[in-house]
């Protein structure tokens, strides 16, 4: 359907007729039933939907943690169906940063090492890893807590460490799965501000999966998923306005 014209950069994600069905004790369950979705570089998109709508499945597919049953998925222009598990892991490592609802930090490992973990799998040397992890932690305002373990941190801080980890490898996209789900309003707000700022400053695309409409409203585009299909794809504000401080220029 969509072909890429020469000169324009490939879309961050491009899904065509994406389906995913699970086999649950002999019964086939269709979690996604044909999703077409294109997310450009630098976009800030919220994927919305009630639980069971298929939004988590979509997130896993976009994150290359799972493979579609049918359809085509291109990540940064690369068709993931052509990649084996090893190449898929490398693709995740290089193009996608994950932020999870329950943070998923190594509890007894210092923040700095948690943040540096993606670089370990990229084969980056120790001193460079430290330098980049330090920079990432400073960028999320945690320059003073680099030696702390997640167990010594508040939920908000932990999620910021997780965001630093998502950013340390310079990804094209940050996939955030209910990033505010385990946080109180104030910390949730802070995390959202951070994601917005990163999107605006560094141009990394942010794809946010949530079921909270007010969180989704912070994004410039909302993709509503229901029963395994995209129900509505709306661009609420075309111009940067409202809650965002706005991009200048």
């Amino acid at each position: 359907m969509t072909t890429q014209s020469p000169g324009t950069p490939p879309a961050a994600f491009e899904a065509i007729g994406l389906t995913r069905s699970y086999d649950l004790e002999g019964v086939s369950v269709d979690a996604l039933r044909g999703v077409d979705l294109r997310i450009e570089q630098g976009e800030f998109v919220a994927i919305l939907g009630p639980s069971g709508s298929g939004k988590s499945t979509l997130m896993h597919l976009l994150g290359c943690l799972d493979r579609p049953t049918s359809g085509v998925l291109r990540v940064g222009g690369v068709d993931v169906s052509t990649l084996d598990d090893t190449r898929l892991a490398e693709l995740r490592n290089q193009t996608i940063g994950f932020v999870f609802q329950s943070f998923h930090l190594l509890a007894r490992t210092p923040a700095l090492d948690n943040v540096a973990l993606p670089l370990v799998y990229r084969g980056v040397g120790r001193s460079e890893r430290r330098a980049r992890a330090e920079a990432a932690l400073k960028a999320v305002g945690l320059g003073h807590r680099m030696g702390h373990r997640p167990s010594q941190m508040s939920g908000g801080e932990q999620q910021r460490v997780a965001i630093a980890r998502a950013l340390v490898g310079d990804p094209q996209v940050v996939l955030a799965d209910e990033p505010t789900g385990n946080l109180d309003t104030r910390n949730g707000e802070e995390v959202m501000n951070l994601l917005e700022r990163l999107n605006a400053d560094s141009g990394v695309a942010v794809v946010l999966v949530t079921h909270e409409p007010d969180v989704a409203a912070r994004a410039r585009r909302q993709v509503h998923v229901r029963d395994g299909l995209i129900e509505l794809d709306s661009r609420s504000r075309t111009a940067p306005a409202g809650t965002t401080e706005g991009e200048v220029g």
Binding site: A89, R92, N93, F98, H104, Y121
Partner: peptide
Amino acid sequence: TKEIGLRKALGARQRD
């Protein structure tokens, strides 16, 4: 298991 899942998400290959 969770740690392994996380490492894989962050780019750990099977052999890692």
